[in-house]
Design a protein around this nucleic acid. Sequence first.
DNA 1: TCAAAAGTGTTTATAGTACACCCATGG
DNA 2: CCATGGGTGTACTATAAACACTTTTGA
Lengths: 229, 229
Amino acid sequence: MLKNYSAEDKVLLAVDCIIFGFDNEDLKILLIKRDFEPEKGKWSLIGGFLKKNETLDNAATRILHRLTGVHNIYMEQFYAYSEVDRDPVERTISVSYYALINIENHNEELSEHFNAKWFSLSKAPKLIFDHNEMLEKAIRRLQRKARIKPIGFELLPEKFTMLQLQKLYEAILNKKIDKRNFINKINSLDILIKLDEKDMTSSTKGSFLYKFDQEKYDDKLMSDFYIKL
Amino acid sequence: MLKNYSAEDKVLLAVDCIIFGFDNEDLKILLIKRDFEPEKGKWSLIGGFLKKNETLDNAATRILHRLTGVHNIYMEQFYAYSEVDRDPVERTISVSYYALINIENHNEELSEHFNAKWFSLSKAPKLIFDHNEMLEKAIRRLQRKARIKPIGFELLPEKFTMLQLQKLYEAILNKKIDKRNFINKINSLDILIKLDEKDMTSSTKGSFLYKFDQEKYDDKLMSDFYIKL
DNA sequence: TCAAAAGTGTTTATAGTACACCCATGG
DNA sequence: CCATGGGTGTACTATAAACACTTTTGA
């Protein structure tokens, strides 16, 4: 007996991308203004449909690039949304992906002919369909991740100050962190290299710049740890 | 402009269920022998296709029940597999779910006219398609979960001994745990009720039975903690 | 000289880890 | 009376948390 696959229902499979960025102050999310019905003119996650001959990972990368110009981003899949009426036009299941990117590194790509725009999380507009739910879940995922893996490499410029890194953690975890405890914790992880340079823009005294020690950082990514902050 | 959804590719969407059970000794996985081509006669996860008018959660529940008789199980979705050739017959994306169940509670349901069988993780056969990969990922997910959430309620009988609970954690984490440290840790979580009864089957002295304090257990489920064992 | 951010350590509290002996009972 | 699993506590170590003052320098 060969099972009759042709008797099974086929559906549209979409991918929606939740792209987080950081501007040294707030955690931001990249959204686009829809230029087609339904919900034309409303804000939406970056999404599109899976094609027959690509994986979901490929689709996410392709769609992100098509709609925003951003490329070379590692995205992580996190949940499939399947409410029957989630898309009013036709039955569509959506698999969501999220990524962290450095806003500055991608500003040129995000040029004007794309309808994409960064929003602070606290000022994000209402989104179409179940996209707000996706965003909420992605934030929770990101917060959990920040506690068990080092994070920051993707969101900060190559060289950054301790205060920038701390602000990033504060933005993700949405809470104030004690400066001394933060520095002690980060130093104990042993993933930063302290440079000789100082950033002079933020104060008269200037603050030392750091960069990630790629090798040690990658090691830590492999093995879980727990940051309680 | 109304976007032409009809130009988009549709695909088959499958659900595969990774069902973990525990027999007081080993962590086990429920598999079925396929009774149709391709790969007829080989062992497989419990899977089937999503129908047009159900959510993925519904599909997982329906498929599990259809193929094994097991019902009333809460499953958690965890990953979508989309390699282009993962199913040789036709392009199929599969969303995997996992659940923990108490083997004893479901033995009657798992009657003979189903082709389902429990395998110890260490003795699980080679599975079809990418199902081994799904199983590996599910185990890692379960291990991570066991470290940040209380676990056991679903896998143990209503009344159980400390040793049973410890064996469960040892099976999931795949390591020996010190008895005293384990008891101290579990007691500090404050989710068990010690009963007056003893289980006399395991030793001459008998060992006290416990049950989960449903309310406190549910509270702990909400807020993450960290068990390092 | 002073405003503004950088930098720096210690103490206390909590949680994790390692470890070994006596107890109760049925056979 | 002894074999078997049940039950119990303490000392040590590591990590987390709370907390405040001095330094630098450009304006």
